[in-house]
Amino acid sequence: MSNVLSLKTSYYEALKRLTLELAGVNLGDDHAFLVETRLSALARQEGYQNLTQMIDDLFGQGQTRLAIRVVSALLERDTHFNPDPVGIETFETLLLPELYKANPLAKLRVLSFACSSGQEPYSLSIAVDKFLKDKENFSVEILGVDYPSPALSRAKEGKYTHFEVQRGLPIRDLITYFDRAGEDWIVKPSISQRVSFEEFHLLSKPDGLGQFDVVLFRNSLAHYSSPARIRVIRSLASVVKHEGYLMFGSEEKLPTTNHNFDIVPNRPNVLKKHAEEIIPPPEIELPKAPPKEYQPGQSPAERA
């Protein structure tokens, strides 16, 4: 670590362990500067004189609330509108039409998992708006969840700087779906009314969130440790409705297959849940025979 940083190496290592334990995310060895910048800002917000004081308190007194705040600050991601244009296009031109065809009177529920500052849920809502046009009885609600953080508070506000709205958002969408608010831009009520946000610990059980027709968890898998990745994917799979979709980032390789999902043709990052739960057959219980003693020189066939 560089000498200009005030954070001790041992503290940095402890923060890496904390992030792995609480969020299942591996912080790289080269994130020291980012950690210092983000946590210094948090220390000021929390009323500490400096970062070291906050870290001393964190590890000395084991404050759970502070630990969550620290991990949330470390995991805040820089997201864009239409962060993955192929994904939004798939949602708009494939998933929405399929779900509409299945039930034109449905009220769809969409989950944007790890939504950060909200650009993905709002991009989805814009896609919904374009799709809905003449479909009066079909409606969609979008829920964005992430750790409690300033990013999530900004998501709830729906207000973005002129730099943020220019990253990923076509100009026609900007003037159609946003209003100017001084130097910033704010999402129009027609788009924000179908979007809500909730604070949520991404490794906890999502049962309380309900069931969803589409669940999106994109471009975050790579940061998770293997056990955390499996845990998150299992959790998400459990909240997808039957015949609903689970969608990852276009570039992401799915770490595992699940017997209740099929990969959608030509969309390797999109899984569709089967209409009915497939319960794997129970393992056949073999009759318990007394184990035969192993005799030296006996072949396996002779022992059987």
Partner: peptide
């Protein structure tokens, strides 16, 4: 076809060129 509001940076130019 597109519109960039100043001030801009390389990310914005790249994003608009992509669009």
């Amino acid at each position: 076809d597109e519109y960039i509001m100043k001030p801009f940076d390389s990310d914005i130019i790249a994003s608009k060129f992509q669009q």
